[in-house]
Nucleic acid binder design. Structure first.
Length: 439
DNA sequence: TCTGGGGTCCTAGGACCC
DNA sequence: TCTGGGGTCCTAGGACCC
């Protein structure tokens, strides 16, 4: 069947796109801020109980991403485990992107530690090859931020991504149009950006197990078996740039979600509901912090077998107040929950977000009640800011909190005091304002 | 890969309208 | 009452990413 979505724009002139990927970003930031950690196996993610990022020293000892701390410690007994400090990482991120923009205005902040930079046409102004510009970017970041990055350079974003992964850390790989085949020949399809496990399986069934084989298929074949996303990837693999480097910053969140796994899996109705109300409270706190209100509420229950069940609820009024959301939450929960099934995690998504300021009051809304709620939550947020999250919380979440405290006594929750102190030291070094918290 | 948490985008199909 | 053809909007859910 003919694919009649938007026509593809293929740039006729070869582009020069750099993909910059920071090496073990979170761990590197920690090491840059605290030089004593240099050369040592470090991971972040302690507060989540899993490895979020591992330094190259830790990776060398077999520590992998997303494994739990117990296993990590087992393969690497001298592992230094740190809680994530997103404020610090964001600061590094901002500074890194600032450096990129000295080289080109076309910088796409793809994630906290990755960027695409369109260098097309900049050779003249920098008196050198694209490769030398990339090298300059690399050395500037290392000199100014004391972290290293790997850079891939090619004619499309997908190829630039492949290039940056080719050698790490501190790699610099250029894939010119003529050499594309050399880099795709041994590349399994699922290593290509945008091709996941499902599409990879589909491709393998069609006999296409390497990126090169896939890229060499003709357009008719590709259109017959795939839809837009993968047709675009196919073009990009062939050096035809489809994806533009988009400089415009992301306009806030489209959705905010909070999920949490509990062990062991449970079918206890009130316990599970407590978990999900806590998810809701957390999601609402985040939404209010960003001045957003949700128009849709999605409830998720992940079953023991990792299958997700859920329900989406349209809200009568955009809101980020748990008090207004508990009723829909409860109704949706009852519809979804099955006492015979064991669940391993719960989650909540606040979707259809809109700026909280622009909410129109409905004809039948109780103005006084809403105003009262606004005031209450303003106070709640203020108190939480001063005394820590969940100083105040809703009764329905209480069983979840008690469980967390119980775990804390067993040492699963990091010690608050030491964390604050180390945080303060880092902030001082970075010249960030100190926050005094009285507990 | 026996699997944590937080996001985005795309598509098919149904509802509804002319 | 049944019959076309076609458009738009919405939603569920898949797939993928870091």
């Amino acid at each position: 069947m003919e694919n009649i979505s938007r026509p593809l724009t293929i740039h006729s002139w070869p582009k020069a796109i750099a993909h910059v990927d920071a090496d073990a970003f979170f761990a590197s930031c920690e090491q840059a801020v605290n030089p004593e950690l240099k050369g040592k196996p470090v991971i972040t993610g302690k507060e989540r109980g899993i490895v979020a990022a591992a330094s190259y020293e830790a990776k060398a000892k077999g520590v992998k991403r997303a494994v739990n701390l117990f296993q990590a410690k087992k393969v690497c007994p001298d592992l230094i485990m740190l809680p994530s400090d997103y404020e610090i990482y964001s600061l590094f991120s901002v500074r890194m992107f600032e450096i990129f923009r000295r080289f080109s205005p076309d910088v796409e902040e793809y994630s906290i530690d990755e960027a695409f930079i369109d260098l097309t046409g900049l050779r003249r102004s920098f008196h050198g090859s694209y490769r030398s510009i990339a090298r300059k970017i690399q050395t500037t970041v290392e000199k100014e931020l004391d972290i290293t990055v790997s850079i891939g350079l090619s004619v499309s974003k997908v190829l630039a991504k492949i290039a940056s992964k080719h050698k790490k850390p501190k790699g610099l790989t250029a894939i010119p149009g003529r050499e594309i085949h050399r880099y795709l020949a041994d590349l399994p399809v699922d290593k290509v950006w945008g091709i996941g496990a499902n599409t990879a399986a589909h491709l393998r069934k069609l006999g296409q197990n390497t990126a090169l084989k896939f890229s060499r298929k003709d357009e008719e074949f590709v259109k017959k078996h795939f839809t837009k996303p993968h047709i675009e990837i196919w073009h990009e693999l062939n050096g035809r740039s489809i994806y533009p480097v988009t400089t415009e910053e992301r306009s806030g969140y489209k959705s905010i979600s909070k999920v949490k796994t509990f062990t062991p899996p449970s079918n206890d109705k009130s316990f599970i509901f407590a978990q999900i109300s806590k998810n809701l409270e957390n999601a609402c706190i985040k939404a209010r912090r960003h001045n957003l209100a949700a128009t849709r509420l999605i409830i998720l229950l992940r079953r023991k077998d990792f299958k997700d069940t859920g329900i989406e609820i349209k809200l009568t009024r955009p809101t980020a107040y748990p008090a207004e959301l508990f009723e829909p939450l409860r109704k949706g929960f009852i519809k979804t929950y099955n006492p015979k099934i064991f669940y391993r995690s719960t989650g909540v998504v606040l979707a259809g977000l809109m700026p909280a300021g622009s909410i129109q009051r409905g004809l039948f809304d109780d103005g006084t009640r809403i105003e009262g709620m606004r005031k209450i939550y303003m106070a709640v947020d203020k108190i939480s800011e001063r005394f820590g999250k969940h100083t105040l919380q809703h009764c329905s979440s209480l069983p979840a909190k008690l469980q967390a405290q119980h775990e804390g006594k067993r040492g699963d929750i990091p010690n608050r005091k030491t964390e604050l102190f180390s945080g303060e030291n880092k902030r001082q070094r970075l010249g960030m304002p100190l926050i005094t918290i009285n507990i």
